[in-house]
Computed example of a mutant assay.
Amino acid sequence: MQLEVDLAGQRIVVVGAEQASRRVLARYRAAGADVERVSGAAALHPGALAGARLVVLVESAHGGGFAPPAADVPAVAAGSGPAATDRTVVAGDLRERCRDAGVLVVREEAAAVGPGHVTLIGGGPGALGLLTLDAAAALREADVVLYDRLAPTEDLAVLAPAAELIDVGKLPGHHRVPQSGINDLLVRYAREGRHVVRLKGGDPFVFGRGSEELAACLEARVPCRVVPGVSSAISVPAAAGIPVTHRGVSHLFTVVSGHAPLSEEEHLHLAGLGGTIVVLMGVSTLPQLVAGLGRAGMRPGMPVAVVERGYSASQRTTAGTLATIVTAAGAARCQSPAVLVIGEVVRVGLELQGGATHLARLTESLAS
């Protein structure tokens, strides 16, 4: 049987040690409840349950009492309850008092108390369905989540119901928390015995600085696990129907960061490789990129697409050629986040969706 109760504004009393109760506390607070934690027999003091809608007993995994050691349970003042501080006795007496007062009592298992650790998670391009099963499992067990703006954040309170959520996302030209600060937070929270999840968009090791965070954890001797994610370099073109490889058209693709302009040598190498070029974070440097590729010998008619906000309700594709894409992107006011795709696979993708004629018309009109 499953019951759904609106706990917003209701007083909830959680009985257990702070560390063992941390996930229970976070979950009920996330539901909007007015939550108070007390330790053991303190719940038997007069007035401790006044106005409570629900009492949650946080018990050890093997049952039979509260999760913390008996030392955590304070002695009960004379006349306010049984003199014994045995956890089982206290729990039994507390249930009886709640029954007499008409207060619902539930039991929940304590959070594991032990060494903290970090999980670096790739959240994919932001669509919840592209989060991996391992990533979802890690979020369910998280005590703290440090997340970026491009990660799947809309349902984060549901995905990580017991976690403290901290936004450390970077905006173009503005870093709310510098990378060194993020590294310090990962280590600090883990040393407090917490499971810390670092949630990033895409894959943590594809322009995500995940390797720097892993290095910081290893240097501090904090256990760290990496859960790969679906990279936007592949998934966002796919969302627009553009394959990064296609038999007889392209048998390789190169992923490039467009955060800063490339050198002439890099343009030359890219143009000479052939295949498909995928550029992440490249809207602001698009003019320098196409100019550099043109100087390196790439033909003006090479198809180019700008895919904005892949997998969102406002996803949009702007197509053109190397000679026309800057004008087309400017007219469409393309903005980040966006993925650029350069290569004949763009034509393949448009043909699959009946858009090749649009590309031809756009090329002709802007070339005239």
Rank of each mutant, 00 (worst) to 15 (best):
64 G>P: 00
273 L>Y: 09
310 G>S: 07
342 I>Q: 03
142 A>D: 02
98 C>T: 11
132 T>S: 15
143 D>G: 08
193 G>V: 10
97 R>A: 10
120 L>F: 03
184 D>G: 14
137 A>S: 13
141 E>F: 05
105 V>F: 05
72 D>Q: 14
198 R>T: 05
256 V>S: 02
259 H>N: 11
298 M>I: 10
142 A>S: 10
304 V>Y: 02
154 E>D: 15
170 K>I: 11
156 L>T: 04
258 G>I: 05
101 A>C: 10
276 T>R: 01
7 L>S: 04
108 E>D: 15
3 L>P: 03
53 R>N: 06
194 R>S: 08
50 A>Q: 12
256 V>I: 15
90 V>G: 02
175 H>M: 09
102 G>L: 09
190 A>V: 07
208 G>I: 04
205 F>Y: 14
295 R>V: 13
211 S>L: 09
271 A>H: 00
114 G>D: 09
39 S>H: 13
256 V>A: 06
128 L>I: 12
142 A>Q: 03
73 V>A: 09
164 E>D: 13
213 E>R: 05
322 L>D: 04
266 E>L: 09
368 S>Q: 10
177 V>S: 04
27 R>S: 15
176 R>V: 15
17 A>N: 10
167 D>W: 01
191 R>Y: 05
334 C>E: 08
250 S>V: 08
278 V>P: 00
265 E>S: 13
226 V>L: 14
279 V>Q: 03
36 E>H: 15
178 P>G: 07
25 L>M: 15
273 L>G: 09
95 R>S: 12
233 A>H: 02
8 A>L: 08
17 A>R: 06
308 E>R: 07
151 A>W: 00
38 V>A: 08
349 G>L: 08
364 E>S: 14
112 A>R: 13
197 V>Q: 01
340 L>T: 05
59 E>F: 08
143 D>R: 05
182 I>Q: 00
284 S>A: 14
266 E>Q: 14
63 G>Y: 10
47 G>N: 08
237 P>M: 07
63 G>P: 03
260 A>W: 08
236 V>N: 01
306 V>W: 01
241 G>R: 03
61 A>F: 10
7 L>K: 05
75 A>L: 14
80 S>T: 10
352 L>D: 11
59 E>Y: 09
259 H>S: 11
276 T>W: 02
273 L>S: 11
213 E>Y: 04
94 L>V: 15
215 A>K: 08
235 S>Q: 04
319 A>Q: 08
225 R>T: 15
181 G>E: 12
267 H>C: 15
368 S>W: 13
134 D>I: 07
314 S>Y: 08
179 Q>P: 00
